[in-house]
Simulated scan of single mutants.
Amino acid sequence: MGLRDRGVEIKTPEQIASMRRAGLVVGETLELLRSHVRAGITTRELDAIAEDNIRSSGATPSFLGYHGFPGSICASVNDEVVHGIPGDRVLADGDVVSIDCGAIVDGWHGDAAITVAVGTVPAEVTELMRVTEEAMWRGIAAARLGGRVTDISHAVEKHVRSQGSYGILEDYTGHGIGSAMHQPPDVPNYGRAGRGPKLVRGLALAVEPMVTLGGKDVSTLEDDWTVVTDDGSRAAHFEHTFTLTEGGAWVLTALDGGEAALTALGVPFGGR
C-alpha cells in the first residue's frame, strides 16, 4: 500500500513553499510571545498578541475554532501538558508555560510549540525544558529520505531516556501536516526504529515531544481540552514542522530553517 493509499499527503515544492511561509509566521509569533512572557501577564493577553501578529502577517490562526477551540494558541501552565485554553490565568514567577501555535497561508499549515520559563524556575524544570527541546531536534536529525517514521520516534525516546527519569506521553503524538493541521501519519515519541511509513520528499511532519518530571499518565480536564499530568508533575512541550529535501531536513517553522541546530548535531541541512 502506497503512502497516498494510507491518507498520507505528499506536497509539491510549491505547496511546501506555502508551508514555509506559514511556518515563518508561526516561528515569528512564538518568538514575539517569548518576549512577552512575564509575571503578571494573562494567557488571554498572550493569545491576543498571537492572533494580532498572525493576522497582520497575512495568515489565519490554525487553532481558533478548530473543533470549537476558543483560542489562537494553546497556553499550558506547569502540570498542564498541552491544549490549555487561554484565559484569565495570571502567570507568576516560577511558572512554565507551553505555547503551541499554528497558522495557515494559502490553505497550508505550520505548527510549532515552545516552553518558556516565567522568571526563575527550579533547576530540574530548566533541565526538563532542555531535554525536551533537545529530544525534538534529535528526532528531526534522525530523519532521512528512505527511512521510516519511527526512526524519529526512537531518537526522541533514546535521548530522553539517556538524560534521566522522565515521563514521555504516549497518548499524544506528533503528526503529518499540510492542507490540514493534523494528518496521517502519527509520529510517536517512543518506539523502535525502522517502522511506519517511509520518509519521502513532499512529506511534512510535526515532531513534538511532551515530557514530564514524573509519570506518563495524563487526564483531560472538564473543559474537554486541557491535558494535565495525573501526578501533578511539571511538563514541557516543544514542536517543529519539518520536511526532507535531497539535502537533508528543512525545519519550516524555525526562522533559520533549523540550520544552526542541525549543523550542531552534525547532520545535513536541507533548507534553501
Rank of each mutant, 00 (worst) to 15 (best):
T212Y: 12
V227G: 08
F63D: 00
W108Q: 12
S153N: 03
K216A: 15
A141N: 04
I49W: 03
A117Y: 05
G194K: 07
I41R: 02
C101K: 08
I85G: 01
V81K: 07
R21N: 05
N53C: 00
P70K: 08
A112K: 13
G214P: 15
E134Q: 15
A204H: 04
L3F: 14
I85C: 03
A254M: 11
G174Q: 08
P188V: 01
T60S: 04
L32W: 06
A261P: 01
V228T: 11
D171H: 12
V211D: 14
E9A: 04
G2Q: 13
V26Y: 07
T60Q: 02
D47H: 02
G174T: 07
R148I: 02
H182G: 09
R201P: 05
A235R: 11
T220M: 13
A204W: 07
T60I: 13
G247W: 05
G23Q: 01
F238L: 11
E9D: 07
L221I: 13
D256Q: 04
S72V: 04
G147F: 10
F69A: 01
G270H: 07
F238D: 14
D95T: 11
A261C: 02
G258R: 01
L265V: 04
L255S: 07
T29D: 00
V116N: 12
L262M: 01
T241K: 10
E14Q: 05
G102I: 15
G147C: 10
A39C: 03
Q183S: 07
R130D: 13
E51T: 07
P209L: 12
L213W: 15
W250A: 09
M136I: 02
R6E: 09
T120P: 06
A155Y: 06
V121M: 05
F242M: 13
V105T: 14
V149H: 05
V156Y: 05
L46V: 00
R89A: 07
K216N: 15
I54F: 02
N78D: 09
L145A: 01
S165K: 09
V77I: 12
P122F: 10
G71M: 01
I114P: 02
S153T: 12
A260H: 11
L252F: 00
C74S: 13
V160G: 10
V125L: 09
V187T: 03
T245N: 07
Q163D: 08
H36W: 06
G232S: 10
G196E: 07
I73P: 04
G2K: 14
P197A: 06
V207R: 04
T263R: 11
I54K: 03
A236W: 12
S35F: 00
F63G: 00
R272S: 03
P188L: 02
R272K: 09
G271R: 02
S56W: 00
R44A: 10
H154T: 11
I168P: 14
E208D: 14
V218E: 14
A75T: 04
I41E: 05
R6F: 08
A48T: 07
V81F: 03
A264K: 04
L30W: 03
R21Y: 00
V187R: 08
I85P: 08
A264F: 00
E134Y: 11
G139E: 09
R130N: 06
L30H: 06
E127G: 12
S35N: 11
P70E: 06
A112P: 12
G196A: 03
H175I: 06
L252A: 03
D47N: 05
D256I: 06
A143V: 08
